[in-house]
Simulated assay, not measured.
Amino acid sequence: MPVSDLSSRTALVTGATTGIGYQTVRLLAERGATVLVHGRTAEEAAAATDRLVSLHGIDARLLCPLAADFAVLEEVEHLAARVLAEHPHLDVLVNNAGMAAPERHTVTADGNEIAFQVNFLAHYLLTHLLEPALTSDPGGRVVNVSSSLHRTGSIQWSDPNRVRRYSRLAAYAQSQLALTVFAADPRVTAVSVHPGVCTTSLLPLYAHEGVSPAEGAAHVVRLCDPAVEIVNGAYYDREHRVEPAQAATETRNVKRLSKLADLLVGHSA
């Protein structure tokens, strides 16, 4: 497929300082897109943009470093406010930031199990806060970087923070299932994608070896291209549209998850 010019596009990529997120920024910027580079701290975001310029020859004018620790929902709100003020027209939001659930049950200051908050709740909140900026033009979209492990997950509706029974793999799979379900939320034009097993910090959850983060990022960037027609709410395994877990397609789960997430983030959508 021909590579289209993205010089008129503005994208925000979360978790953009390493791995798939970093390579997604590189590929988008190489095609001319203006990219908001999110990192957990301002120092990490600035260091990533510096590397993109010095190592890959990216035009610094195309990059804007932004910071927010997704383990702190107030920082997510500040991030959204800054984007709305400085970039009121946003074509693409790539919800990529993620973490492996820790060995021990960990709760954020907001009261949420940390992987559920960082991998899903923060993106849910950010997406809805950015609705005024997300374009309704053809090609505008949200791309959730999910995982094939969503198929092993279940959302514990009465105990989403898994206080009663915690497993790091189950907590991670729950967060990825929630992110996949969220793509079917009718309030946003969105898809979710499993970019393949890549050699990132999350590799031990999947296998002993994987493809490069750049190869995984290429599948994400393909879905960011307005020339690529997407099916709203669809799930992609790399370049192929496939059916997600049955739980991710049930209308009842979409509505139930929205209510749960609104409660946990203190946001009324």
Results as ranks from 00 to 15, higher is better:
residue 68 A to I: 06
residue 41 T to H: 13
residue 105 H to A: 11
residue 151 R to E: 03
residue 261 A to L: 05
residue 170 A to V: 07
residue 112 N to K: 02
residue 21 G to P: 12
residue 72 V to E: 12
residue 49 T to N: 04
residue 132 P to V: 10
residue 238 R to K: 15
residue 4 S to W: 04
residue 202 L to M: 14
residue 248 A to G: 12
residue 37 V to A: 05
residue 61 R to P: 00
residue 143 V to T: 10
residue 207 A to Q: 11
residue 102 P to Q: 08
residue 135 T to W: 01
residue 194 H to R: 06
residue 147 S to G: 06
residue 247 A to C: 03
residue 61 R to A: 13
residue 70 F to S: 01
residue 77 E to P: 00
residue 49 T to M: 00
residue 212 S to T: 15
residue 69 D to P: 06
residue 27 L to H: 06
residue 5 D to C: 03
residue 185 D to E: 07
residue 11 A to V: 14
residue 38 H to V: 02
residue 208 H to T: 15
residue 136 S to T: 15
residue 263 L to K: 15
residue 59 D to T: 10
residue 178 A to G: 08
residue 10 T to N: 04
residue 25 V to H: 08
residue 106 T to Y: 03
residue 164 R to S: 10
residue 102 P to N: 12
residue 18 T to D: 14
residue 109 A to M: 03
residue 239 E to R: 15
residue 43 E to R: 15
residue 135 T to I: 01
residue 102 P to I: 06
residue 160 P to T: 02
residue 23 Q to H: 14
residue 241 R to Q: 15
residue 155 I to L: 09
residue 65 P to V: 07
residue 123 H to D: 09
residue 168 R to G: 07
residue 269 A to T: 13
residue 30 E to L: 15
residue 157 W to R: 12
residue 67 A to I: 02
residue 162 R to Q: 11
residue 109 A to F: 01
residue 138 P to V: 12
residue 129 L to C: 08
residue 201 S to T: 13
residue 106 T to K: 10
residue 260 L to R: 05
residue 178 A to E: 08
residue 123 H to N: 06
residue 233 G to F: 04
residue 257 L to V: 10
residue 260 L to Q: 05
residue 228 V to S: 11
residue 65 P to N: 04
residue 168 R to Y: 11
residue 212 S to K: 09
residue 135 T to A: 07
residue 108 T to H: 11
residue 120 F to P: 09
residue 18 T to N: 13
residue 232 N to W: 04
residue 148 S to K: 11
residue 129 L to P: 10
residue 23 Q to N: 09
residue 194 H to V: 13
residue 12 L to K: 06
residue 7 S to M: 02
residue 103 E to S: 12
residue 78 H to P: 00
residue 80 A to Q: 13
residue 213 P to M: 03
residue 179 L to D: 02
residue 217 A to K: 13
residue 82 R to C: 00
residue 102 P to K: 08
residue 111 G to W: 06
residue 203 L to F: 11
residue 226 P to K: 09
residue 253 N to V: 15
residue 69 D to V: 05
residue 245 A to C: 08
residue 32 G to D: 00
residue 204 P to M: 02
residue 34 T to P: 00
residue 178 A to S: 12
residue 235 Y to E: 07
residue 47 A to T: 04
residue 60 A to Q: 14
residue 72 V to D: 14
residue 19 G to N: 07
residue 62 L to K: 13
residue 135 T to F: 01
residue 169 L to K: 13
residue 95 N to V: 01
